[in-house]
């Protein structure tokens, strides 16, 4: 079964005919993803990559019955694209776009209050369920079907984690993205994996900035003995100086509880096996599995 993307998920691509949308849709199709079409304003009626193009999500939904979308729309228009999907009541929106103004995402957060739509991202590599399908840019060939759930703020570190957990395989890989205001967070992803009968262990990859990792650690602490899964973690940025933004808009230490060390401590105190370097995250996961 896995989470977020299953065989039943019908996916469209927003920004379908653009360079990024085209490139990654081709790869999603090659990965046997259930991509049913795409949306590009003013290009409705066209056929692209042998799939129908629609002007709006509402139209796409009417024809294809899609329930999920991947957003590859440029930053100034991305928040609007997300909200179009929210209004069409899609189950899942995965926004890959990097560079969306924070205040736009604040508006999205406000509009999504009470909505049934789940947003993953923005500024993320997307979601991939090995052997089933993907939304986003995670390379399919480095992931293997299995029982480890991976959740990561960083794209490349989720790839490292997938490669290092090859022999266990992954149920689903969720990239939650590097922006300060986003959709799905660690707690949400942990909840999904905890409830998923096909996930036996969880890899959590955080980084400096914000306190989402600490919230995740608090959530893990609240797990009872009966409903619990082993978690291995890593937090990037131990060597980062204070006050410098490192690549991701959200990767900046503004106060003491946002450092990698503080987050590692929080995770350790919740029983997470923390890898000191990213190269040992696979070992940490195996150790956590054995401990259980």
């Amino acid at each position: 079964m896995a989470v977020l993307i299953t065989k039943e998920t019908k996916i469209i691509c927003q920004g379908f005919t653009g360079a990024q949308g085209t490139f990654h849709s081709e790869r999603a199709i090659a990965y046997n993803t259930n991509l049913v079409g795409g949306v590009t304003p003013d290009k409705g009626g066209m056929t692209h990559l042998d799939l129908p193009v629609f002007n709006t999500i509402a139209e796409a939904k009417k024809v294809t019955n899609c329930n999920a979308s991947g957003v590859f729309v440029p930053p100034p228009f991305a928040a609007d694209a997300i909200l179009e999907g929210v209004e069409a009541e899609l189950d899942l929106i995965v926004c890959i776009t990097d560079g969306i103004p924070t205040s736009d995402m604040q508006r999205v957060r406000r509009e999504m209050k009470g909505s049934k739509t789940r947003l993953v991202g923005p500024n993320c590599p997307g979601v991939l369920t090995p052997g089933v399908g993907k939304i986003g840019i995670i390379p399919g060939h480095i992931c293997k079907p299995g029982r480890i759930g991976v959740v990561s703020r960083s794209g490349t570190l989720s790839y490292e984690s997938a490669v290092q957990t090859s022999e266990l395989g992954q149920s689903t890989i969720i990239g939650i993205g590097g922006d300060p205001v986003n959709g799905t967070n660690f707690v949400d992803a942990l909840e999904l994996f905890l409830d998923d009968p096909d996930t036996d262990g969880i890899v959590l990859i955080g980084e400096i900035g914000g306190t989402a990792e600490v919230d995740g650690a608090d959530f893990i602490k609240s797990w009872g003995k009966k409903i619990s899964k082993p978690v291995a973690g890593f937090v990037a940025g131990a060597a980062a100086p204070k006050g410098k933004k490192l690549g991701h808009a959200g990767a900046i230490v503004s106060s003491g509880d946002e450092t990698a060390d503080a987050k590692k401590e929080a995770l350790k105190s919740a029983g997470v096996i923390v890898a000191e370097t990213i190269t040992t995250i696979g070992d940490a996961m195996r150790k956590a599995m054995e401990k259980k």
Binding site: S154, G178, G237, A238, A240, G247, H248
Partner: peptide, 12 residues
């Protein structure tokens, strides 16, 4: 390549 991997490389 990648902000996360770049930080993780500084760390290692």
């Amino acid at each position: 390549n990648g902000a996360g991997l770049s930080m993780a490389t500084m760390d290692i």
